[in-house]
Amino acid sequence: MNTIVIELLVNNHPGVMSHITGLIMRRACNIEGILCGTVGDGNTSRIYLLMENDWRIPKIVKQLNNLYDVIEVIPREDCDAAVFDRIPEMMETGAGV
């Protein structure tokens, strides 16, 4: 499967994950993996979504950008999905590093 990792920086409070997963579900897309953890002082979280890379991804990225609690969305095609094994360090550094 041709996969993509979507990296999000979001406000950290209850309901944010529902907004994000709900938006993706409404597009009838499946999420293959989710990593999530707080960043810094805990006001924000970083979320990594592992998804199949198809024509819907650019549209989903735009719609994610419209969500009030989403601060940043970065689709990472170059990201090795194996980073899903490295949860703790990714939460600190971001997948691009």
Binding site: P14, G15, S18, H19, G22, L23, R26, L67, Y68
Partner: peptide, 14 residues
């Protein structure tokens, strides 16, 4: 209400 209105609002607050 919060959960029900996620997909039909621009944004919602609890």
């Amino acid at each position: 209400t919060y959960g029900l209105t996620i997909p039909i609002t621009k944004h919602n607050f609890l």
